[in-house]
Every structure is written in C-alpha cells, then in structure tokens.
C-alpha cells in the first residue's frame, strides 16, 4: 500500500467528523469503513485520529477525510479545532447505553456551534448487533433525527452492518449539496439563506472542492 503517498486521484475532498460519547464505537466505525477492520478491544482514542477513503458518487470520485475524536468531555475544548472545515458528521451513540443517546443533544449543539448550518449530519446508533442489550428504541432515535432534521441509521461495526451505507449516504448528501451549489451558483434560497455560501472550505482549508472551482471566495 502506498500509505504515505498522496493519492491525488479525486474530484472532491470532504472532511467528515465522527463524534459521540466515549466507547460508542467511533474508532471501529472508522476502521470498518476505511480498512474493513474491527477490533473488540481497541485502544481509546486520545486527541484525534484520521483516515481516508475514496468512493464513487455518480461519476465523480469523492475522497472522504474522516476525523475520529476522543469522546471524553475533557477533550472537547481541544477537539473543537478539529471541526474546522468539516462538511459532514456522524454523531454516534451506543444503542445499549441510553446515556450516550441522551448526550446526543449536547453533541449536536456543539457541532452546530462549530460548523456551518449546511453540514450534513447523520445520527448513528451503533452496536445494533447487541439485540438483547438494546436500551434505545429505534423509533425514539428516528423521532429525534426527524425533529432535528438529521439523517439516521443504525449500524454494527462488528457485523459490518450499515457502516458502508452510513458513510456513503453522508458523502453522497454532501456531494449533492455541493454539486447543486455549483449548478445554481448559490442561488437556491430555499436551501441556503440569501448571500450565504456553503462552507465547504476555501482552497487553503481541509475540505476543498478540488476541480469544481467554486470556492474562490
């Protein structure tokens, strides 16, 4: 693998962050999606970890740059720097620990405080394979997601269930927002307040549209 070599073969680069309480399985979702790996006993994430994977959306190559952050409260002040330039987020809770679902609201607030309003957010109920331990009903999470206008999916990083779908859906939605913006030149006032552009980052930033050339602000 050319792990250290820059693979420049993409049309779009999107920064996506994984957030949620400690121990909900963020790192395993990331490793499942980017390396198809899962580990029952993985180390806790300190600071931030980072992985990429490219997928095809329509006829374009979309490269996802996914940031995995520490879950504990103490690290939030630091991790806020990692939100910069993010255009998508997977907000993860553990379906077997209700408290992690209760905290979703706080995570959502933090995310909205630090990122653009057009950020694509997917609420993810992970560990759905642990059926006998379920503590959060699918309907409750679905209701929450509808109220907050986020996407929603239940996943199992262990069984590789819906992981691909969750990431792909977020990336496809971001792509839709961005490509629509390119077509409409930011004129779609039903989606975006007048005069506001979608912050997918300037050229200097992490998430940048590589060839679309729309972000010359």
């Amino acid at each position: 693998m050319g792990a250290y070599r820059a693979d420049d073969d993409y049309d779009y680069l999107f920064k996506v962050v994984l957030i949620g309480d400690s121990g909900v399985g963020k790192s395993n979702l990331l490793s499942r999606f980017t390396r198809n790996e899962f580990s029952l006993e993985s180390k806790s994430t300190i600071g931030v970890e980072f992985a990429t994977r490219s997928i095809r959306v329509d006829d374009k190559i979309v490269k996802a740059q996914i940031w995995d952050t520490a879950g504990q409260e103490r690290y939030r002040a630091i991790t806020s720097a990692y939100y910069r330039g993010a255009v998508g987020a997977l907000l993860v809770y553990d379906v077997t620990r209700h408290v992690t679902f209760e905290n979703v609201e706080r995570w959502l607030k933090e995310l909205r405080d630090h990122t653009d309003a057009n950020n694509v957010i997917m609420l993810v109920g992970n560990k759905a394979d642990l059926r006998h331990l379920r503590a959060v009903a699918t309907e409750d999470a679905k209701g929450f997601a509808e109220r907050e206008s986020t996407f929603f999916m239940e996943t199992s990083a262990l069984e590789s269930m819906n992981v691909e779908n969750a990431f792909t859906e977020v990336l496809a939605q971001i792509y839709r927002v961005v490509s629509r913006k390119v077509l409409d030149v930011g004129d779609d006032s039903t989606y975006f307040p007048k005069g506001q552009t979608i912050n997918v980052g300037s050229r200097d930033d992490v998430s940048a549209v590589k060839k679309a050339g729309c972000c010359s602000s």
């Binding site: 250290y4 820059a6 970890e49 990429t52 992490v206």
Partner: peptide, 17 residues
C-alpha cells in the same frame, strides 16, 4: 525527508502511525 515530500494527508497519516 518523508515529511518534506508529503502533503497534508500523507503527513498526518505518517505522524499518527
């Protein structure tokens, strides 16, 4: 040398592993 030859992504991957 590897850092000087790298871009944002490859540098970060190298330094995190």
């Amino acid at each position: 040398r590897r850092l000087l030859a790298g871009d944002f992504t490859s540098i970060l991957k190298l330094l995190q592993n």
